[in-house]
């Protein structure tokens, strides 16, 4: 991660009246990248989803400041930004863990016992589905089908699809991410 540069304000030219606070966030290039996306879409309100995608890629999740910033830049009311951000499963309003495990619960995976994989991971690492461990190491999520039905049951570990999973294999795959006392 780049060193925080306390002196440089994030670009606020798009929302000159009241730029968002950046407290607790490194004032790095990420807002510049976000602004570039916003500019590419000519600040059109229609680009809300695209911009939220970019923002989440940049920051990992969407906090209130980011939502406010995006709303002002695209000239969309805050409640609509919030409504859109919470409608879609992909957007997260809370920080995610350092690592992620997504268990596919699609039909093919269901038929092949994906629920047992989910239960095993939950139990082994004390993490609720769609939650994060208290130490912030692991986020567990479920997917509605990742399209890897031919390899069911499947799970995604830090972005890599793994097929023909078993409860034990899933737990083992996560083990190296976790502190040893678990």
């Amino acid at each position: 991660m780049t060193a925080p540069d306390a002196h440089r304000e994030p670009t606020t030219t798009l929302a000159p009246t009241a730029g968002p606070t950046t407290a607790g966030r490194p004032a790095d290039n990420r807002f510049k990248i976000l602004d570039a996306t916003i500019k590419r879409h000519r600040r059109q309100p229609d680009a809300l989803l695209e911009v939220l995608h970019t923002a989440q890629e940049l920051f990992g999740y969407l906090d209130r400041e980011t939502l406010t910033y995006v709303g002002r830049a695209l000239r969309v009311p805050p409640s609509r930004v919030y409504g859109v951000a919470t409608f879609y499963n992909f957007f997260s309003l809370k920080p995610k863990g350092a690592h992620s495990c997504v268990v596919c619960l699609g039909t093919a995976c269901y038929v092949k016992g994906a629920d047992r994989i989910l239960a095993a991971v939950q139990q082994a690492y004390h993490v609720p589905p769609h939650g994060t461990t208290p130490d912030g190491q692991l986020s567990l999520a479920t997917a509605r089908c990742i399209g890897a039905c031919g390899l069911a049951p499947a799970a995604v570990f830090d972005g890599d699809i793994a097929g023909r999973m078993t409860p034990a294999a899933a737990v083992a795959r996560i083990a190296p991410w976790m502190p040893h006392d678990q």
Binding site: P77, S79, R80, V81, G83, T86, F87
Partner: peptide, 27 residues
Amino acid sequence: HTWDVMARGRRAMIVSDLNQPWGESPS
């Protein structure tokens, strides 16, 4: 446009602004 609908399905709720207390809604 203070109000909108958040989330979806059975979890859908009417919210003001960024789901903040109505009394604190700037809009």
